[in-house]
Design a protein around this nucleic acid. Structure first.
Lengths: 277, 277
DNA sequence: ACTGATTTGCGTATGCTATACACAAATGAG
DNA sequence: CTCATTTGTGTATAGCATACGCAAATCAGT
């Protein structure tokens, strides 16, 4: 089971994300730190998935009682938020120091997708846990900032930059989810997952109208059969990635062509003006 | 909380999806039907979200005891599967009777995205519940089939068709999720959601490095501020949709140009051959 | 060194969840 | 009328998040 995070007092969560609270010096010293708690939770989620992540399990892993955790974290959803922010801090891009120049945005966007894919592969639970609103901690903001810089100065308005980035990140999420699924499929070959299709196929053949759904059966089995090798799944990932970036490129190009429209720019409201370096 | 479905015996689930089990005639007559149970669950999820969907609540709504439900459904995850299949049957496309012809695939793909958006808007819980593998019931298969026909015969291989459809559906999911989020934001204006940004912004200003993250702050607040009106959110939805389809179009066009490569087609393995009407 | 305020750790309790199991009620076939 | 069969349901279990209260630890001021 996986929830969207973001419940509870947002300001309290924000303070936790930025670690504003200091130990006052008075009173009993804490035996743990927020970082230890969150790290243990992340390790557990990495190893066994979000479903197996309970406060009890985290406490056991740390050798403390369940209720001790609530001294560090207001609740489970807030812990999720902090987990997301922490792992978001893992991604780092090297494209800020002007590699590629103004036309390098294609490869920079590719890097963004690949970095996100790697993040999802390291922490698959991120795929099932999507916060309604992103936790605005240092990790998330650094990531968002770096990713914006990948497409800054190519002639998009602020709102357009956000839309493009959202589109690209959404592709990274979806495509990685599929990739992981296919990898699981091919990994445990003699496991129950290989037999899944094998045992279901004959039943399906009996149940559904073969003529009516001829196309679906052909394409579906083609996708299932040919993706057994990881190579094809990789190919599908790259395929979609190029499609998405192509679509963005055609938009960027179309914007640059009618240059006489620049005169209209000053008539636009603040946030919609194109930002060029 | 939301899980991926697909646990339990897949064959048993398949039988439920296709309603193979008949009442044998013997024994006590069932007071409910599978459809009643699933419908009640869908209504409850529509109204209060997946988090509030418990077997107890469903049973209460139907005026039976909790355990009665397990006579119709092996478990909760299986019920999720059936829910997904049932609502998938709601979508229907009118583009099968040859409107637009061979070059109408752009508008047909748009229709696919819009139909999926409408589905997600009717049943927002679909966004949080994504099955690891789709339940192969009549609804899901009919939907998949109709969506494949939207891009059939335009010169893609079977595997490419699956990749394109996956990409498009993934966009529909992600973009609709964002859209719904923004709508919620603007809907409850004097609710806590409007104050969320208002109360958080000053704290954030204090916490993060304004210079370092100048771009992120500008774009982020632009996206948040300008999307208060639903109109802009709609615009962002259409924007991404056109980008995705543009990317697919450039691929389809590039495939058609080098026509002399058709000779190589016969060398390709079965599922990778382009299927043209 | 002692006191009091303060903070952490933890045991207990509550109310929620899914669901295994046993049994009662209902019903058709013989 | 009997019996096998199927459904409805009460009870029980194990797990979950977490509210609450108290004990233990630690510091500042005396």
């Amino acid at each position: 089971m996986a929830t969207s995070a973001g419940a509870g007092d947002p300001v309290r969560t924000l303070e936790l994300l930025w670690e504003v609270r200091q130990h006052s010096g008075l009173g009993r010293k804490p035996e743990l730190s927020l970082d230890q708690v969150v790290s243990a939770a992340i390790e557990l989620a990495d190893a066994e998935g979000l479903d197996s992540l309970s406060m009890r399990r985290v406490a056991e892993r740390l050798g403390v009682s369940t209720m001790s955790l609530y001294r560090y974290v207001p609740g489970k959803t807030e812990m999720f938020d902090i987990m997301v922010d922490r792992v978001s801090a893992e991604v780092c891009y090297h494209h800020e120091d002007g590699d590629g120049g103004r036309d390098g945005w294609r490869s920079r966007l590719e890097q963004v997708v690949r970095a996100n894919r790697a993040l999802f592969e390291r922490h698959p639970w991120l795929l099932t846990l999507f916060p309604r609103r992103p936790p605005l901690g240092p990790g998330v903001i650094a990531k968002y900032s770096a990713e914006l810089h990948a497409i800054d100065g190519i002639g998009l308005t602020d709102v357009e930059m956000d839309s493009v980035l959202t589109l690209v990140l959404e592709y990274a999420r979806g495509a990685t989810a599929n990739l992981i699924e296919w990898k699981k499929f091919s990994a445990r070959a003699e496991q129950s997952d290989d037999q899944w299709w094998a045992t279901l196929a004959p039943h399906l053949d009996r149940l559904l109208d073969q003529e009516r759904y001829a196309l679906a059966v052909r394409v579906g089995s083609a996708a299932t059969t040919h993706y057994n090798g990881v190579h094809d799944a990789e190919h599908a990932f790259e395929f979609g990635l190029q499609r998405v970036i192509d679509g963005i490129e055609s938009f960027v190009d179309d914007k640059c062509l009618p240059a006489e429209d620049d005169l209209l720019t000053d008539a636009l409201p603040e946030g919609k003006r194109p930002s060029r370096r």
